[in-house]
């Protein structure tokens, strides 16, 4: 039998935090914009590669976190609704 121990608000906040993190990863700036500061030497190219060369993983992770965060927030909301419906029925009203 499944057991549940859930803090609905925390789950909601976790979802929001994951979406924020996903958004930050998705909108990380283009490192080429700062290339000028390094001059024409190899360090500038290496730094650009280091900061921008994980784009595939970054965007994939950003999307996964956004979707997972949304799912967590929806789950948190659903737990709230379940709690509210259960409480309503215990107070004598019909459940939704």
């Amino acid at each position: 039998m499944a057991t549940y121990r859930v803090d609905a608000q925390t789950v909601l906040e976790v979802g929001a935090a994951l979406v924020d993190l996903g958004g930050a990863l998705a909108s990380m700036g283009d490192p080429h914009a700062d290339r000028w500061a390094f001059g024409p030497g190899p360090a500038g190219a290496a730094v650009e590669e280091l900061l921008g060369g994980w784009r595939h993983a970054r965007l994939g992770l950003a999307e996964a976190l956004a979707v997972l965060g949304e799912a967590a927030a929806e789950a948190g909301g659903a737990y709230v609704d379940t709690e509210a419906g259960l409480a309503h029925s215990l107070h004598g009203g019909p459940t939704a």
Partner: peptide, 19 residues
């Protein structure tokens, strides 16, 4: 991707508003 994140944000806002 920006649209996916923005959509997730709006849904999180709705879930938060419920709480």
């Amino acid at each position: 991707l920006a649209g996916t994140v923005a959509t997730a944000r709006s849904r999180v806002r709705r879930a938060r508003a419920r709480y």
